[in-house]
């Protein structure tokens, strides 16, 4: 008989029947066929979260693969340094793993992930405040050095936008990025920053006006 092997590339989980240890017994050929087909479906977040809460690391790994990209991009724009962004994302996924049992609602996972990442970034920025100017310059250059291929692809407008973002306050930057780039709701952003939706709307409006001024040369 055959065994079921599970491979997980982050997008889909595939079960392969090679040598069975019992599950396949008593199944018709058709049922086995369907089992393998069905196992190839992409599992939804809520299912992966529920399994992770039980301590299933494979499911958690699938969630990490699914969300490391957006969290990394958020952290990179918040912190302006790829090294700091990697550290922050690693820290966030460990914190989230530890606190999973406290999560009330499986569907709230992604919002919670954004909240944890945002707050982690704000803490990192607060901790480095005194030498912020020096650090930013330094990180900027490291960043271009390590990613030349990326730097070349970026349009002048976007480079200017990236630079202008660093001139916003960290809280404004967080609000603006979460809303305009990551499409999170005003309610969620307000919760994340411990403020009101009114205040979030105000911060985003001011950020937008400030950024638009920088865009003036391209109009």
């Amino acid at each position: 008989m055959t065994v079921l092997t599970r491979t997980d590339d982050g997008i889909r989980v595939t079960f392969r029947c090679e040598r069975c240890l019992g599950i396949c017994e008593g199944m018709s050929e058709e049922e086995r066929e369907r089992m393998v087909t069905q196992a190839e479906t992409v599992l939804d977040d809520a299912t992966l979260v529920a399994r992770s809460r039980d301590g299933d690391m494979q499911s958690y790994e699938a969630l990490v693969r699914r969300y490391q990209g957006p969290m990394y991009r958020l952290a990179l724009r918040m912190l302006g340094s790829s090294g700091d962004a990697e550290d922050a994302v690693q820290e966030v996924f460990l914190i989230v793993w530890r606190k999973l049992p406290q999560l009330q609602e499986d569907r709230a996972f992604v919002g919670w992930l954004y909240r944890t990442t945002t707050n982690r970034c704000l803490n990192v920025i607060r901790a480095r405040r005194p030498q912020a100017d020096v650090e930013l310059d330094e990180h900027e250059s490291t960043n271009t050095r390590t990613r030349p291929e990326h730097a070349a692809e970026v349009s002048e407008q976007m480079a200017a936008l990236g630079q202008a973002l660093t001139e916003l306050t960290p809280e404004q930057r967080a609000c603006w990025l979460l809303r305009e780039v990551h499409g999170r709701s005003y309610d969620e952003i307000a919760q994340t920053l411990g403020t009101t939706t009114q205040a979030v709307r105000g911060r985003i409006a001011r950020a937008r006006a400030q950024l638009a001024e920088v865009m003036a040369p391209w109009r």
């Binding site: 490391q68 990394y72 690693q90 990326h150």
Partner: peptide
């Protein structure tokens, strides 16, 4: 200006900078 911003934002939102390929491994070891 706002239109210029909007197109730069679209570009930013479509950005595909990926974390280093070993980040998942590092997270899972931790």
């Amino acid at each position: 200006s706002l239109c210029a911003l909007r197109s730069a934002v679209d570009e930013l939102a479509a950005e595909t900078v990926e974390p280093p390929s070993d980040l998942v491994g590092r997270i899972m070891s931790a």
